[in-house]
Write a protein that binds this DNA or RNA. Sequence first.
DNA 1: ATAAAACCTTGATCTGAATCAAGACACCGC
DNA 2: GCGGTGTCTTGATTCAGATCAAGGTTTTAT
Lengths: 241, 241
Amino acid sequence: MCCRNRHGKRFFTGELYGIDILQTIALFSGLSADQLETLSQIAVRKTYHRGEMIFHEGDKGNGIYIVETGRIKVFKLSMDGKEQILHIYGPGHTFGEVPVFQGKNFPASSMALEPAGIIFLPRDRFVKLLTTSPALGMNMLADLSRRLRDFTVQIEALSLKEVPARLAAYLLTLSREQNNEARVSLPISKAQLSNLIGTTPETISRMFKKMGDAGLIAVQTRTIELQDKEGLEELSESGRL
Amino acid sequence: MCCRNRHGKRFFTGELYGIDILQTIALFSGLSADQLETLSQIAVRKTYHRGEMIFHEGDKGNGIYIVETGRIKVFKLSMDGKEQILHIYGPGHTFGEVPVFQGKNFPASSMALEPAGIIFLPRDRFVKLLTTSPALGMNMLADLSRRLRDFTVQIEALSLKEVPARLAAYLLTLSREQNNEARVSLPISKAQLSNLIGTTPETISRMFKKMGDAGLIAVQTRTIELQDKEGLEELSESGRL
DNA sequence: ATAAAACCTTGATCTGAATCAAGACACCGC
DNA sequence: GCGGTGTCTTGATTCAGATCAAGGTTTTAT
């Protein structure tokens, strides 16, 4: 299968991949040209269509994944089919490292939320490079630490905050990610959003309505106007709606 | 302040610390005698009494902490004083690394649950050692990865399982930690336990009763006999009580 | 462009667990 | 042993949010 990526460069699905993308990724900042070259030689590209599984909880993990295009989710499923999303990642983010460093298998599953291009770095050769590059090691430690921090926030939200507070916090985070615009566009469906903040689509719908009635936001399908950031801030700090 | 530790060696609170303890810690396995010596030169010991804070959420983190004796909890508090415990650590465990690798400050607070001896490794010198020792780096990555895994389990429990399932899972984990004995002793109070699994003391009390009535366990104050591990296993997999 | 599939809203009802309020128990120093 | 302090239990009540059900809207793939 032969195609061209958005830079017009030719590539082959599942084959070697150029360094032009790799050097834009935070994890690889500070690496020498040599090291980037080495990485490019071990990188493999894969494409996924919307809804396709990237890996399953319990699978053996054989390398790290990097999102080049599209969005993916990392999630857990309960016995009875309920889903909790742990992360949603877009271009430049890495995922799937836990089994690389800890052995064992994936603690969660991963699926493409839209057509996605993923770069894969096989474990053994990545680890070898890691042991020869303190900068890469420190970047990796920083990356895992950021995720630990994110998880503490998520646990706090699930355990100590109510749904309106979690939703308000999510909207404010979105705004921060989108240049602090008062108008934000939801990057995921409301159904996915409900799985991310640990509730149901019905509840999300009702809360949006209530927040609209309270003058905090105005919802237009997938675009939400944050009319009262102050109020949202207060609500996110465990206020009541 | 001068005293003797349990090995009879003399030490000074807040001063240099011997390598005999350090080499028993998983994080430092595979290190050379030289490197252990370096570590011992930067290690500082501190003692805490029951209930004393080790650090507060939002504080600047300037190094990593290792439990030598006693137990500590890492936790978050909500606006209205409710607590969610993120980890409980005992001898040999490390904590407080997130700010070391990510900059910024502690995402959670830490308190001694009993009189505790803690070894502290200041950030700058620890990081310097890290960049010269691939083994230490890999150990650290493995450690953070294990914690990411633990967090995925905790999030799954909070979001996807009900209180009886979480409690059953906790009891089975305890049993595994205590040689798979059918009789386990609670290492923490029931009030702390309720904060760990994300509920209240009242609910814990009721669930213990229900599980007793169902013939799954028998509770004697702080000792619990797991009478039906099969049944507990099933209950922990999201069964209903 | 169109049909099918996913997604979203709204209302009615149900339920697990929190909260509030007292007592009972257990462990501590004296 | 004894009183006191902190921890645990038990019951009554309340509530946030899940679930069930059904109709309407948007998105996606072809």
